[in-house]
Nucleic acid binder design. Structure first.
Length: 504
RNA sequence: GGUGCUAUCGUCUAGCGGUCUAGGACAACGGCCUCUCACGCCGUAAACCCGGGUUCGAGUCCCGGUAGCACUACCA
């Protein structure tokens, strides 16, 4: 049975989109594109209590930033809408009614408090075939009374009637055959009258069916409930169009145990969100990859390789190359610890690939923040000299500040190592030499200065390092003639005089 | 507790019975380059969870153990 590939990314708007969720979206996208299929974005907001304003917009903006394009769904529309589950109440109600009519589900009046009490009283209590006849539901209460209670406004839920002791086989595209016995499943709540909304399980199956989803690619946390979903497809008689499942390994904390959580990011000093997130409830701000200076291509590349690996040793992939190379069969089964260090390396790779004009464009606003206004071509030139030594655009400031302003202080470690007893004398003499040089080009300066050093029989390193300290304020930076070339004669001499004054 | 999934260097991973004295990348360390710091290049250290099978032969297949993770809600 071959049908058009249609996948969906279906987050719930309970906060910022987690980086693990981003990877799920990415894999869905890669799979869809590779197979000439479509990707849907559906918002699973069936829990009215957990709704967070702004989350939906955040998700859309994140995917946009990362270059994950949605073909159908929220924000782009389509023929199978609405794509927000809270707007599909009537659709779900119809299917719930059908299940009830077919005797595949029943109405239960047990309150959350009663269930809680039951769980406290009976160890490992489970609402299932073994216990449901002792509970307050339409299986034990006469039909007329059930009607009356509902008419009286009593709240209820609809539970799925799971037949016990049946092995449910599931073919997972990543894990192969998975078998689970139905007895371990409970009679899941499918619908709650309180907010007239279904729970995830029902909404998910109904929507995937109605939206003609061919492949469900989601996190491993769903694997235990996948058999329930199979049962639901069967109950509706949709088994022949049931999507194929692929359960992705989870992203784990870099330290210690457990899956990566929203709080790990700022605790360990790296973002777990694509974009900066301002929580409207707590007011806390969490850092994002975009604001931290990551390129979307780097984040995509990094994430793609966290749990997936093509044949060969290639590690740098554009989105198109990923689309081409991706395969679910090559997704790892084990969870991956989130290795933040490698993310920096990816960013570095993409940064050095960018041309100087592009980088200058990105760097100019940062320069402005430091009070520097410089012409584009100058910035581009300078950036070109140092781009290989940074991972992020914002680090460019540290590497280039001395091109724009004279050092105001001198790095102590550099002084200790490179500013010798003779240094003031050397600099003084060099100052005299340079004052007489009119051609300040790199080639000429190199010729003149090297000749002078040779004549005086000074050590090249000793003189040049002291010179560098005058210009940069520390023992670092690009080639010294690149610096003098950029700042010019007057500034070079001025910095030398300042240093002589301050360091003698 | 129950059920399921998983298990190769510190980390991400390659490996789909012999070519594995286990390959790549990040990180670490050392060297080269060099006026400095980087980059780059070269190199070093570093792993098949344990125990049984199957097989002429197991990192690769099977079973058990152990460990990790997930799920076990009127959350997704």
């Amino acid at each position: 049975m071959s049908r058009p590939v249609r996948v969906r990314f279906a987050p719930s708007p309970t906060g910022a989109l987690h980086i693990g969720g981003v990877r799920t979206a990415l894999y869905n996208y890669l799979f869809a594109r590779q197979n000439g299929g479509q990707m849907l974005l559906r918002i699973e907001d069936t829990d009215s209590n957990r709704f967070v304003p702004g989350a939906e917009e955040y998700i859309i903006e994140s995917l946009q930033w990362l270059g994950i394009k949605i073909d159908e769904g929220i924000s782009v529309g389509g023929e199978n809408g609405p794509y927000r589950q809270s707007e599909r109440r009537e659709i779900y109600k119809k299917y719930v009614r059908q299940l009830l009519l077919d005797g595949k589900a029943y109405i239960a009046f047990d309150t959350p408090q009663e269930l809680e009490a039951k769980r406290a009283e009976v160890a490992n209590f489970q609402y299932d075939a073994s216990t449901r006849m002792q509970m307050r539901n339409s299986l034990v209460i006469p039909e007329a009374e059930v009607r009356q209670r509902i008419a009286d406004g009593e709240q209820y839920v609809v539970r799925f009637k799971v037949e016990p002791n049946e092995d449910i086989h599931l073919h997972d595209l990543i894990r192969g055959e998975v078998v689970i016995n139905s007895s371990i499943l409970d009679d899941k709540v499918l619908y709650k009258s309180a907010d007239e909304l279904p729970t995830y399980h029902l909404a998910n199956i109904v929507d995937d069916y109605l939206m003609k989803i061919s492949h469900v690619i989601r996190g491993e946390e769903w694997l235990p409930s996948a058999p329930l979903h199979v049962l639901l497809y069967r109950a509706f008689g949709w088994e022949d169009v049931m999507p194929q499942f692929a359960h992705l390994p989870l992203l784990l904390k870099p330290d210690g145990n457990g899956k990566l959580s929203k709080r790990d990011g700022d605790r360990l000093g790296f973002p777990v969100f694509p974009l900066e997130w301002h929580d409207p409830k707590t007011g806390t701000i969490s850092s994002g990859y975009r604001e931290s200076g990551y390129f979307p291509e780097a984040v995509i590349n990094f994430l793609a390789l966290l749990g997936w690996h093509a044949e060969g040793d290639k590690e740098l992939y554009t989105m198109d190359e990923l689309i081409n190379a991706f395969s679910l069969q090559r997704v790892s089964k084990a969870g991956a610890k989130f290795d933040f260090e490698k993310g920096k390396w990816f960013n570095h790779q993409y940064l050095i690939q960018k041309n100087n004009d592009e980088l200058a464009q990105l760097f100019m606003p940062i320069l402005k923040e430091h009070g520097i206004e410089a012409p584009h071509d100058k910035v581009a030139r300078i950036v070109g000299l140092v781009k290989e030594r940074v991972n992020f655009v914002k680090e460019l400031w540290y590497e280039t500040c001395f091109f724009f302003e004279a050092p105001t202080e001198y790095d102590e470690k550099s002084l200790k190592k490179r500013w010798k007893e003779d240094s003031p004398k050397h600099i003084n003499e060099l100052l005299n030499v340079l004052e007489g040089v009119d051609d300040f080009s790199a080639e000429n300066l190199d010729k003149v200065v090297m000749a002078w050093i040779a004549e005086k029989e000074y050590g090249v390193g000793v003189v040049m390092n002291a010179f560098r300290i005058c210009l940069v304020g520390a023992a670092r930076g690009p080639h010294i003639w690149a610096i003098t070339d950029e700042i010019g004669k007057e500034e070079t001499l001025a910095r030398m005089r300042t240093a002589l004054k301050k360091l003698s």
